[in-house]
Design a protein around this nucleic acid. Structure first.
Length: 731
DNA sequence: CATCTGCTGGTTTTT
DNA sequence: CCAGCAGATG
């Protein structure tokens, strides 16, 4: 146990205040690099060591599982605190845990504790089927768009029963019906999507006061990190938990709110003091991370936002180097020259791979860097992007595991009923589906119950029986054997490694490698689990942990590599050498996020977040031309660059040098005719319009500027069309 | 019933 | 440019 002095002395006055003030509501407005994480860790240590608070009475919510793990490590290593009974995790993981704990004790909760968590891929598949079954066209109701709408509803605690859009259009009515069918399908599968984890937890708290009371009493001290990125469901959840004791400490920075599009509401942090009358506010404005030139550039940029708490970060660090700003001819050359710069940093001994990072706005931008880095032998790693656990070969194995844990999970069963190929094709599958729905049972038990009286051919019957017996065998093993052993046996029994070796050479090989890595990861998991709980993890323990793990959480291997990631994934991280690429109008701010002030402001915050990750040197670049599918587009430098005084930059133009090397092809692109300063859209998303031929409708999205803008419109007759803006009149 | 092929459409950001 | 998918073929 450490003394109060030992915990507080490394902190500055503001940080001390935030740690010290443990009773009642506290709002910590912590600017970028001001020691936010440190503050939370020390506060937890202070509560446990000095205030003698039982660790099981503390709940700390972080934005990623990675952040949670880092906090646990720091508590263990720096303060010798056991994190065994401490709840530290994301909202989603905490909700999953609560729902698994409570759902079996209450028959009114419409799912049971072994529920499957469906990820974005599953959601897509499911939504496609729902729409198909309803006999509506998926061009009028694109699954992803519909899912997006439903997601926002759920985050605002709207379910299909109380879904009542303010317009009574055909479009909205159908959305309501899709919502209902989708949700019912999830529950039939005993499955939840990400948003359900939040929404059902709030629902449970409100519906069963005794459950709420239990958690209110358990979590006497709440800490919420990144509060600026909470949505209404998360807001309501914390409000309910804090209601009785009000020992709630939220930490955040309105300037770093970058998830508005996901339902996050910046007002949650801006109006915290109104929600809790006796709020103690701590403002932390000293930045310990960035050199002065970088910080003041970021300050200047963010000062252009209207809706924010006014504040200016300062640093005691030296001036540092100017931001290097490069104009390059195109995306390919951007990668070539950055690769060169990185090579120089490494060879000169100035930096190690792991001290360098590249931030971009869209995942697609990573490709050019990957190819170039492979050529130049620069070790790199993509953080985020296509999730390891979402790869086909991994999801197939996971589907086996899921069906064993949750026999109602038809979705997973259908995924593997004919994988690897065992001769159960479309026809047999649809017969099985009919049989199951007729008997009102799920597919797994349908497999068990089919017999000669049902209309299956003898051979189909035999194949399905044998599939059932395989599952049955695994199922028995899953109850006694640890997860790592089970996975190994499944892979062996299905002969997956050989299967992939026979596939196309490169693809098959990486797939086989991924499976091996997956097996290794289950072994790691089992080992860690045993260390912590002194017992071997079974299937259910594994699935509960794995379903919410994302790639960002997995990157802790400490490899010495350059990190590539989106600006969104950069949140909470820091690197000595930062490269921000694609600083262009159209990328940041993104074309799809530039038709309202609030969208532009969020884009500005995103760039602000990216810039303030810098510990030593910041380099930015923009390209004149960029590959877009199979054509080229020309972008202007980001308007945000104009908002920063030139004295912060050292500018380079690489165009002329480049023209000599690469003439021809790459320069066929035409310059965009409109200047962003004058370009504007007369239409807004959500606006109602009319068209001479198709009648009235509502704008769902806008692409491009001015009269050339392409509008996606849902017309009242149910059709979805893409129309050039000049053919449309506002109502 | 499985496999092959040619077409389409998708790129904003993610727990 | 590429993955995923519908429809034709063996």
């Amino acid at each position: 146990m450490l003394t109060t002095l030992q915990i507080l002395s490394p902190l500055n006055d503001k940080q001390k205040e935030a740690v010290h003030y443990t009773e009642g509501p506290v709002l910590v407005l912590a600017g970028a690099g001001s020691g936010k994480t440190r503050c939370i860790v020390h506060r937890i240590a202070y509560l446990i060591s000095c205030k003698k608070v039982n660790p099981q009475n503390i709940l700390a919510v972080t934005f990623t599982n990675k952040a949670a793990n880092e906090m646990k490590e720091r508590l263990k290593n720096s303060f010798n605190i056991s994190t065994y009974s401490l709840w530290i995790g994301t909202f989603h993981s905490m909700c999953a845990r609560i729902l698994r704990a409570e759902s079996d004790s209450y028959s009114k909760i419409p799912f049971s504790s072994n529920f499957t968590i469906f990820d974005a891929n599953d959601q897509n598949r499911i939504m496609k089927n729902v729409i198909k079954k309803m006999n509506i066209s998926d061009t009028n109701f694109p699954p992803k768009k519909v899912l997006n709408i439903i997601s926002l509803q759920k985050n605002n605690l709207v379910n299909y029963k109380n879904f009542s859009p303010n317009d009574s259009s055909y479009y909205s009515k159908i959305i309501g019906q899709i919502f209902e069918n989708y949700q019912k399908y999830l529950l039939e599968n005993n499955g939840l999507d990400f948003d359900d984890l939040l929404a059902y937890t709030v629902w449970v708290f409100e519906k069963f006061p005794e459950i709420l009371k239990k958690y209110q009493e358990k979590f006497k001290y709440l800490l919420i990190d990144e509060y600026q990125d909470t949505n209404f469901a998360q807001y309501q959840m914390t409000y309910l938990l804090a209601k009785s004791h009000k020992n709630i400490c939220v930490v955040g920075d309105d300037d770093q709110s970058i998830y508005g599009w996901r339902g996050a509401d910046i007002r949650n942090i801006l109006s915290f003091e109104n929600d809790y009358k006796t709020t103690k506010i701590v403002r932390m404005t000293q930045n310990y991370r960035s050199p002065e030139l970088v910080l003041s550039a970021a300050n200047e940029l963010i000062a252009n936002n209207e809706s924010r708490h006014k504040k200016e970060l300062w640093t005691a660090k030296g001036k540092g180097k100017k931001i290097q700003l490069y104009e390059v001819p195109n995306g390919k050359y951007e990668a070539i020259f950055i690769s060169k710069k990185i090579r120089e940093l490494i060879n000169s001994g100035k930096a190690d791979y792991k001290e360098i990072t590249i931030f971009y706005r869209t995942n697609a931008q990573s490709r050019e860097f990957e190819t170039q880095f492979l050529k130049d032998r620069i070790n790199y790693q993509i953080v985020g992007g296509v999730n390891f656990y979402q790869r086909k070969e991994i999801k197939d194995i996971l589907a086996y595991l899921r069906i064993l844990a949750n026999p109602s999970d038809n979705e997973s069963l259908l995924r593997i009923i004919n994988f690897p190929k065992r001769g159960i094709g479309k026809v047999a599958q649809s017969k099985l589906l009919d049989f199951a729905s007729h008997k009102k049972i799920h597919l797994y038990s349908a497999l068990q119950k089919i017999d000669k009286t049902s209309k299956f051919s003898n051979s189909a019957l035999k194949k399905m029986k044998s599939f059932y017996s395989i599952l049955k065998k695994f199922s028995v093993k899953s109850k006694s054997e640890p997860i790592n052993k089970l996975v190994k046996e499944i892979v062996a029994e299905l002969n997956l490694l050989d299967f992939y070796k026979n596939e196309e050479l490169i693809k098959g090989e990486t797939r086989a490698d991924n499976i091996k890595e997956f097996i290794a990861s289950t072994e790691d998991f089992a080992e860690n689990f045993f260390e912590e709980f002194s017992t071997e993890p079974k299937l259910s323990e594994y699935l509960q942990n794995i379903s919410l793990i994302t790639d960002i959480d997995r990157t802790d291997k400490g490899d010495n590599v350059v990190s590539l990631m989106t600006m969104h994934n950069a949140k909470g991280l820091e690197f000595p050498y930062v490269f921000i690429v694609g600083a262009e109008d159209g990328l940041i701010p993104h074309t799809n996020s530039m038709d309202s002030v609030s969208e532009i402001e969020e884009e500005r915050r995103l760039l602000y977040v990216a810039m303030t990750r810098t510990i030593k040197e910041l380099t930015m670049s923009y390209a004149n031309s960029r590959r877009f599918f199979n054509s080229y587009i020309s972008n202007f430098p980001s308007r945000f660059l104009d908002e920063i005084n030139d004295k912060h930059f050292e500018k380079f133009i690489l165009t002329s040098e480049f023209n000599k090397q690469y003439s021809g092809d790459l320069y066929k692109s035409q310059k965009r005719k409109t200047d962003w300063k004058t370009a504007h859209n007369k239409f807004k998303v959500g606006q109602r319009i009319s068209h001479s031929k198709f009648g009235q409708g509502m704008i769902l999205s806008i692409r491009g500027n001015g009269d050339d803008a392409k509008l996606t419109i849902s017309f009242n007759n149910g059709e979805l069309k893409k129309i050039i803006s000049s053919f449309v009149k506002s109502l």
